[in-house]
Design a protein around this nucleic acid. Structure first.
Lengths: 347, 347
DNA sequence: CGGCCCTGAGAAAACCTTTTCCCAATCCGC
DNA sequence: GCGGATTGGGAAAAGGTTTTCTCAGGGCCG
């Protein structure tokens, strides 16, 4: 009577037992038919498969996981509430894992040890195959101890525990990209405005900045360290362009993040200094929503977080599969996204 | 020999069988002891519990789920890649569920039907107890059909399917908060600059804006619709303050989001118009990173997404528990976060 | 024609926990 | 001291799948 004999969504999931019954075989045979295991006539196999398809059979992952001791599930732990860094990373992780049938539990632990403990225990109880730890800065630990977990852990964009596998962006390399881009464009008086000295990346980037300038025989002006904010960008422009005579002004500013760069660009405009004609500006993070709203749109260093996430996902998977991985920190290259805040190279 | 007899992290999880053996009882008794079921001497119960604690026993969720037909797992489906709306919502969901032992699979399906299908099937295979669908705008469906799923679905901040349960922010109410705030401060010539006409929220907010003004016998100027960008904010200021004589200028601007507001504030400053002295500005979304960076910091309508998420989580849970829920869309109130872009009320 | 091997398929254990019955022993009142 | 109720605890099934072992039958070689 039913108008269609196609797979209908019944009220309760169809089990292997039902498939087997419908196909007139045992569950063992049915299982083997669907998994390509065991020996049987091609005809039997196909008949079972057809039955399964028709019934809309989907194996119960819970039962499979229980038996195989693999849940095809991983946990992503973060303390990056706004997801500025975690979400691109998560996208990469998810992308790497989705077609292997692995799903991701996302847990934000804020900076709360108790919450972290709670989430980690929930994950362990759910028998996740592994955990990826990530955060909002690479020189701080998550507020939770993952060091004796009996499941693999990968640290991505957060400080790894000793002896663990960590993936981070190559901040020095990213800074290098920025400064060398300025050089190629003929800029020579390059300033660096960055975040608080308490961040390791601030020093990594500043050092690369110095290195590149020295390698090219150029004067190094001391990086200006402040906050990760627009306001600090304004202040820094004040410092850079306030006192010195025009000839002492920089013709390029490499900023520690996009918000600083935004502040810098706005402050320059307010002073009547043209970007990119008088001064080129490069940001860091390539936070599109900011970089595309600056006037002009901001050239910025992208940390390739999504790639980082994908690599982390793949690394975790190979760890889960029992392949040993060399502990230590692996740095992944950044890339420069060129927009309009640096001008064109001289003809 | 071992220096400590405290629970050590062994290589393989300890099972109930092991606890039972160690305590000299059957698994049945052990199970009942730990769950507070069955009858036994208080002493036996405590001994088993102590054994379990000492061994670091944690029940295998997979086995429990298989039996109880509840996985204590839900899926959060979104197409909001940057998580601007999804993440606060996720935080609320997670917060509502974590201490009930429920974990959340986060899946970003972009706008890709194939990807959506893939993720939904993965979730169903993993036997999630329910799904929360969310997105980046409330008048569009996710690119995936969740209407015949045999598990409960809650739509939060996305367009629900017919007959489903949906939770959204009360945009009209939020707009009302903003305009009434202006009125309380003595502002009378209130303009509205919003996003594209293709968004339902644009109309909802605009209508509330008109209503409040009419209710107060004030002139309604037609809302200016454009884009959700800073650039449009600039343009709108041009339109509002470009031609008319000074006496025709608004003394307040209610903006459709914080980025527009940011553009408006910047454009006003560039024209030498003071905020909040000459013109008050209110944004929408309360995107802190933007609202706090404007000069002055932006008063903005917060959609309480985290509350929305918590409500969605609780609603899903009660659905999972079999409590029927009234289908239809429930609107949750917004709140106004007052910063410095509107000034103080007249004494 | 007999023994051996191969083929196709099923029975059953295993994964880990919960829960329903069931049983033996103890206790109570009479 | 005896019948019945209660108490403390165990055996076993269930949940859905995978995998190993086993087995019956048929073909082939000698």
């Amino acid at each position: 009577m039913s108008p269609d004999a196609s797979p209908v969504s019944v009220n309760t999931p169809v089990t292997l037992r039902e498939v087997a019954a419908a196909a007139g075989v045992s569950v063992a045979t049915a299982s083997k038919a669907l998994n390509g295991q065991g020996r049987m006539t091609a005809e039997t196999r196909e008949r079972i498969r057809e039955t399964a398809r028709h019934l809309g059979f989907r194996p119960n992952s819970l039962a499979q996981s229980l038996l195989r001791k693999r849940s095809f599930t991983v946990g992503l732990l973060t303390n990056d509430t706004y997801g500025r860094f975690s979400l691109p990373l998560m996208a990469g992780v998810s992308d790497a894992l989705v077609d292997k049938g692995v799903s991701v539990f996302l847990c934000n632990v804020e900076d709360d040890t108790r919450l972290g403990q709670l989430h980690v225990e929930a994950m362990l109880d759910k028998r996740v195959d592994g955990i990826i730890a990530t955060g909002k800065r690479i020189d701080r630990h998550l507020p939770v101890d993952l060091s004796n977990l009996r499941i693999p852990v990968i640290y991505a964009f957060t400080q790894p525990d000793a002896g663990a596998v960590g993936l981070v962006s190559d901040d020095a390399g990213g800074a290098r990209l920025a400064v060398e881009h300025f050089l190629r464009l003929g800029r020579r008086r390059i300033a660096h405005v960055s975040g608080p000295a308490s961040f390791a990346v601030v020093h990594a980037r500043a050092e690369a900045y110095r290195d590149v300038l020295k390698e090219n025989g150029l004067a190094v002006s001391e990086p200006l360290l402040g906050a990760w904010s627009e306001a600090w960008g304004h202040e820094a422009v004040e410092k850079l362009f306030g006192s010195a005579g025009r000839e002492g002004w920089p013709d390029a500013i490499f900023c520690g993040n996009d918000q600083i760069a935004r502040g810098v660009i706005d402050a320059l405009r307010e002073r009547g200094i043209r970007v990119p004609d008088d001064v080129g500006v490069i940001g860091f993070d390539n936070w599109e929503i900011v970089a595309e709203a600056t006037r002009p749109p901001l050239t910025s260093v992208d940390m390739n977080l999504s790639t980082l996430g994908r690599e982390a996902g793949l690394a975790l998977l190979s760890l889960v599969d029992g392949q040993p991985a060399a502990p230590g920190i692996r740095k992944l290259p950044c890339r420069l996204v060129v927009r309009q805040s640096c001008g064109s190279p001289p003809e």
